[in-house]
Design a protein around this nucleic acid. Structure first.
Lengths: 130, 130
DNA sequence: TTATTGGCTCACAATTTTGTTCGCTATTGC
DNA sequence: GCAATAGCGAACAAAATTGTGAGCCAATAA
């Protein structure tokens, strides 16, 4: 549970006020979270599909992270009628869908500068070999 | 210190392998971190300037976060010669500079969907009033 | 009757992150 | 001799996140 008056929580709130960037980061920064968003985007829109796509995640953790993403309005749950036990489909909201290209941007950025990747050279240096 | 063999650490590594997205998230997700990148980008390139820009951060925490950002090659330190005590300038690397627009994207995304913001309406619904 | 399915909730333990206290460098100025 | 400056490092405490063990629902198949 949150302490609300801890320095930690106060600093978090402070950052939220400084720039919405920090709220965005806090939304996507939990373990599994952005990967879940991306997995759902790819069509793994059921609990067991996500479980299969990310074999290391415990079901309890999966449930918790999904719940948080729902609270943050990144996704929503829809009950599939006439199934037993009732199945649930996870769908990205507009907010969630618009997050995806940003995540892809981060992915590309990370790949570009990964260890072992060819060193990126600024344009004005490229070919300036002597 | 890291435990390396904890489920937590193993899962983190697992996600790093699934997609570079997860490495990117782990780079920017510490408290203060992306705000520091942005502050440096805005010209607060000295320790005391950052301290002033973010009055709530403890100096030791600031030092630690800067050190981590340096280890992740987001920024680098340059000693100002002939000053006493020796001053240090923080500069974004290419990797750091290319992170900035992604952070701005996250900021815009967050603002767009913030509570109180006008509800974004998909194009095909806009004006479909009957 | 018991196991199985799909999706969870709750409480607690393990781990990690964040903040705090103390101290250090080395020079200038009072 | 002592404070101030600019920038930290180490060790520890507080808080937050993540993982784990147990169990629940309600129908249906074995």
């Amino acid at each position: 549970m949150r302490k609300e008056q801890s320095s930690n929580a106060i600093n978090e709130q402070f950052l939220f006020q400084v720039c919405a960037l920090n709220s965005a980061i806090s939304v996507i920064s939990g373990r599994w979270k952005s990967q879940l968003v991306y997995s759902i985007y790819q069509g793994n829109n059921r609990f067991h599909l996500l479980s299969k796509a990310l074999p290391n995640i415990a079901e309890q953790v999966l449930a918790r992270q999904l719940k948080e993403l729902e609270a943050q309005q990144i996704l929503l749950k829809k009950i599939i009628p006439g199934t037993t036990p009732a199945g649930i489909v996870y769908e990205l909201t507009l907010k969630g869908r618009e997050l995806v290209p940003l995540l892809q941007g981060l992915c590309n950025w990370s790949n570009k500068f990964a260890a072992g990747a060819p060193v990126p050279v600024p344009a004005y240096q490229a070919g300036a070999g002597g």
